[in-house]
Simulated assay, not measured.
Amino acid sequence: MKGCGKNYAAVLKGERDIDILYLNDPALYPHQVRVAVQTSAICGTQIGEWNMSRGPDPYLPHCFGHEAVGEVLEVGDEVNGLSVGDRVIVSWMKASADYHAPPKFRDESGAAVNFGQCCTFVTRGVFPGNRVFKIDESIDTDSAALLGCALLTAYAALKYVTSASEIDKGEIAIVGAGGIGLSVAALCQAFGWSAVCVDTPEVTTYLETQDLGFQFVSTVLARAQRVGKHPIVIVCTGAHSAFELAEKLLPQNGGKMLVIGNPPYGTKVSLEIKPLLYGREIIGVGEKDVELPRDLYELVDLLKTGRLDAERLVRQRFPLAHIQSAFEASVSGLGGRTLIDIS
Rank of each mutant, 00 (worst) to 15 (best):
N80C: 09
G48V: 08
S138R: 13
C43D: 00
I260P: 07
G148M: 07
A164F: 15
L258M: 10
Y160K: 13
L146D: 08
H322A: 14
L258E: 03
G65N: 06
E67P: 01
Y297P: 00
A173R: 00
Q252D: 08
A177T: 11
E74R: 03
G55H: 02
S83P: 09
T45E: 00
V79C: 09
G125C: 04
I323S: 13
N51V: 04
D140I: 12
V290Y: 02
G110Q: 10
G5C: 13
A101I: 03
R54Y: 14
A321C: 11
K2S: 14
D211G: 12
A224C: 13
I273A: 08
G178V: 01
G286T: 05
R337H: 07
G44A: 12
L73T: 06
K248L: 14
G14M: 01
A95V: 05
Y278L: 02
I174Y: 01
G255Q: 04
T162S: 15
I340L: 06
I174K: 06
H62R: 15
N114C: 11
F64I: 07
P128H: 14
F216M: 03
A111Q: 10
Y297I: 02
V132T: 10
E272M: 13
V88T: 05
V72M: 08
A41Q: 01
G44N: 02
A68L: 01
V37R: 02
K134R: 08
D107C: 14
A111E: 13
S53W: 01
S194A: 15
I172W: 02
F318T: 03
N51R: 13
L299S: 08
P102Y: 03
Y8G: 06
S91D: 00
I174W: 01
K248N: 11
A10V: 02
A144L: 09
G266P: 09
G335Q: 08
E49R: 13
Y29A: 09
L245E: 03
S194R: 10
A242Q: 00
D199P: 01
A27K: 13
C188R: 02
G129Y: 00
P293Y: 02
C197F: 01
G65T: 06
D211T: 14
F64V: 10
I174T: 03
G70K: 07
K288N: 12
M52E: 10
E291R: 15
S343E: 10
K94V: 02
